[in-house]
């Protein structure tokens, strides 16, 4: 083949490569703002905190039960939207053996309490510690974020943004059947 032909094909090749990369970027790649959790499939970090009503909690005490671990804050608008979803799921599934935990991050205690009262939240609610160790351990990127932890204490999934009830339904019906 002539040298000029090789260069020509090389040029066309580069153009097509750039084209493919961007087509992939537009149509197939995930939203650049969504960050995958690196902890899915791994053992969940232990939590040490005291709930708003003064009960010390750890994850270990719930071993053998599926856990819905939700991070929220009173200043986050999306958390208002999902507040009733979580509470309703709690009413339905806690009697069947699931555990719902809500951790308030970067929030003032009074504001959190107002939020809890306003939305009538009754599941286990606790503040993150002063320097946000729990949220850092879980690699939280924004609120709300929800982790689904199975009976063995392994993180099965992370949901960024408001949670849907069918996600909870699906996870818990599977976990509670076993």
């Amino acid at each position: 083949m002539k040298k000029s032909n090789i260069y020509f094909l090389l040029g066309i090749g580069i153009v097509l490569m750039i084209f493919i990369v961007f087509i992939y970027g537009i149509y197939f790649a995930s939203n650049p703002r969504d960050i995958p959790s690196s902890q899915i499939g791994k053992k969940a970090f232990e939590i040490h905190t005291v709930t708003f009503d003064g009960q010390p909690i750890t994850l270990r005490q719930y071993l053998g039960k599926p856990i819905i671990l939700n991070f929220w804050a009173s200043w986050c608008a999306t958390c208002w939207k999902e507040a009733h979803i979580l509470e309703a799921a709690h009413q339905e599934y806690t009697p069947q053996g699931a555990v719902f935990i809500g951790i308030a991050i970067n929030d003032e205690r009074e504001a959190s309490l107002r939020f809890i009262k306003k939305y009538n939240k009754t599941y286990i609610l606790a503040p993150d510690d002063k320097t946000g160790n729990i949220s850092l351990d879980y690699g939280v990127t924004a609120v709300p974020e929800t982790f689904l932890i199975d009976k063995k204490g392994v993180i099965q999934n992370k949901i960024l943004g408001a949670i849907h009830d069918d996600i909870i339904d699906q996870f818990l019906s599977k976990e509670l059947k076993l």
Partner: peptide, 27 residues
């Protein structure tokens, strides 16, 4: 196109593909 994460990507629009096709045709 909002294909990459950026401080400037406040105005996403759907004409990204048109620009891409234009570039490829031009090249």
């Amino acid at each position: 196109s909002g294909v990459l994460n950026s401080v400037h990507s406040f105005a996403k629009s759907n004409i990204g593909p048109a620009f891409l096709v234009f570039i490829v045709i031009t090249l």
